[in-house]
Amino acid sequence: MVVDFGSQRRSLDRPLIMGVLNVTPDSFSDGGRFVEPARALEHARQMFLSGATFIDVGGESTRPGAAPVSVEQELERVVPVVEAIRAELDVVVSVDTSTAEVMQAAIAAGAGLINDVRALQRPGALQMAASLGVPVCLMHMQGEPGTMQHDPCYDNVIDDVMVFLRDRMRLCEAAGISRSNLLIDPGFGFGKTLQHNLQLLKGLSRFAEMDVPLLVGMSRKSMIGAVLDRPDADDRLYGSIAVAVLAAQAGAHIIRVHDVKETRDALAMVDAVSNS
């Protein structure tokens, strides 16, 4: 499977790594560390050299309880970082946003993928994504970040998430977005209890039925902290590697992580065994 991310073509025949770069003061794990563009670029450089094929730049925190930011503030945080990364590194820049204006500006600055936790449901997002012509990752989230962890409920979490994603894919195609430009993300930790997250991971291979690339992000999340009794997000490395390996074995094409080098080594072993 080969996908064109703007001007860059990447094969998804083996799992690839997406490095997380939050240029926000309040993200759950790295909030405040990379707000300055120079520090953000240096971190992107380190992740690229460690094996990241994608760098996911986000200017609005979507951690549980997070408040939205203004369009102007998100643009000020994201666009200079996207420009700086693309000027130096041969990496696909993903813009982690739900806002149409930010999508437009980031793609103009060189980003090649829109990664939207709201699956293009904000006003104007669907039409903007269709006009830009780059791949879009549609993620499932029950509710909004401010309230999504207030007693989330499903009849069957895998079936319900798949129904939502199929509906969003149909709307995207009707709006003019080619199916070949769609990716999906089941949204671990977004409006889901620990048991919901574990059930999603256990049944992750079912998402292959949707016949589009699968992106997953579980790195350092509270589901790992709950299982391992690790309240500090920075103390969840080994759990993060374990779920990355499980995701790769279940067919994930892109794995979004904070710890690129360690995950690269783990996925290299998975790849070696799979192709032996």
Rank of each mutant, 00 (worst) to 15 (best):
Leu214Ile: 15
Leu200Pro: 07
Arg33Gly: 00
Leu204Gln: 11
Cys172Lys: 01
Ser274Arg: 15
His43Ile: 00
Pro213Lys: 08
Val93Phe: 12
Met218Arg: 06
Met103Ala: 06
Val91Ala: 14
Arg39Ala: 15
Ala109His: 12
Asp259Met: 03
Ile224Asn: 00
Leu182Asn: 01
Arg9Leu: 08
Ala105Phe: 09
Ala129Gly: 09
Leu113Glu: 03
Leu246Thr: 13
Leu215Trp: 03
Met210Lys: 04
Glu88Ala: 14
Gly31Met: 05
Arg220Gln: 05
Arg168Pro: 00
Lys221Thr: 02
Val35His: 01
Lys202Asp: 12
Asp116Lys: 04
Val20Arg: 09
Val245Asp: 02
Asp155Gln: 15
Ser61Phe: 02
Leu237Phe: 03
Ala111Gln: 08
Gly112Thr: 06
Ile114Ser: 07
Met141Asp: 06
Ala208Cys: 02
Asn275Cys: 13
Met139Pro: 05
Tyr238Asn: 13
Asn181Gln: 14
Thr24Val: 13
Gln8Ala: 10
Val163Thr: 15
Asp90Tyr: 02
Gly176Ala: 03
Glu88Phe: 11
Ser61Thr: 10
Ile254Ala: 10
Asp234Val: 07
Ala84Gly: 10
Pro135Trp: 05
Thr62Arg: 06
Leu89Asp: 09
Thr24Pro: 13
Ala226Phe: 00
Ile241Thr: 14
Ala272Val: 07
Leu246His: 11
Leu246Val: 14
Gly31Tyr: 03
Arg230Ser: 09
Val134Asp: 05
Glu74Trp: 01
Glu83Ile: 00
Thr193Val: 09
His196Ile: 06
Met223Phe: 14
Pro37Gln: 10
Ala226Lys: 15
Leu228Trp: 02
Arg14Glu: 13
Asp116Val: 00
Val245Pro: 04
Pro64Arg: 04
Arg206Tyr: 08
Ala248Leu: 03
Val93Asp: 12
Gly65Asn: 08
Ala40Lys: 05
Gly32Pro: 05
Phe164Glu: 02
Ser180Trp: 01
Arg179Gly: 05
Val20Asp: 04
Phe28Thr: 06
Ala175Phe: 05
Cys172Phe: 03
Ser131Ala: 15
Val117Gln: 12
Val216Gly: 01
Lys221Leu: 11
Asp234His: 14
Val35Ile: 14
Gln73Trp: 00
Ala242Arg: 01
Ile254Asp: 07
Thr62Gln: 06
Asp234Ile: 00
Gly6Lys: 09
Asp185Leu: 11
Arg86Trp: 00
Ile254Pro: 02
Arg9Cys: 10
Ala106Asp: 10
Gly65Val: 10
Ala266Trp: 01
Asp96Glu: 08
Gly58Ala: 02
Pro37Glu: 05
Met223Thr: 09
Cys137Leu: 06
His150Ile: 12
Pro213Val: 01
Ala38Ser: 14
Phe34Leu: 08
Leu165Phe: 04
Asp259Ser: 04
Met169Tyr: 01
Asn22Lys: 06
Gly124Ala: 03
Leu215Asp: 00
Lys221Ile: 10
Pro152Ile: 08
Asn181Lys: 14
Ala208Asn: 12
Val136Ala: 03
Cys172Thr: 01
Glu173Gly: 00
Arg118Phe: 13
Ala266Thr: 03
Asp155Met: 10
Val157Thr: 05
Ser61Cys: 02
Arg220Thr: 03
Arg63Ile: 09
Met128Leu: 01
Met162Asn: 07
Arg33Cys: 05
Arg63Asn: 05
Ala87Ser: 15
Gly112Ile: 02
Ala44Ile: 01
Gly146Phe: 08
Cys137Ser: 13
Phe5Thr: 09
Ile177Cys: 11
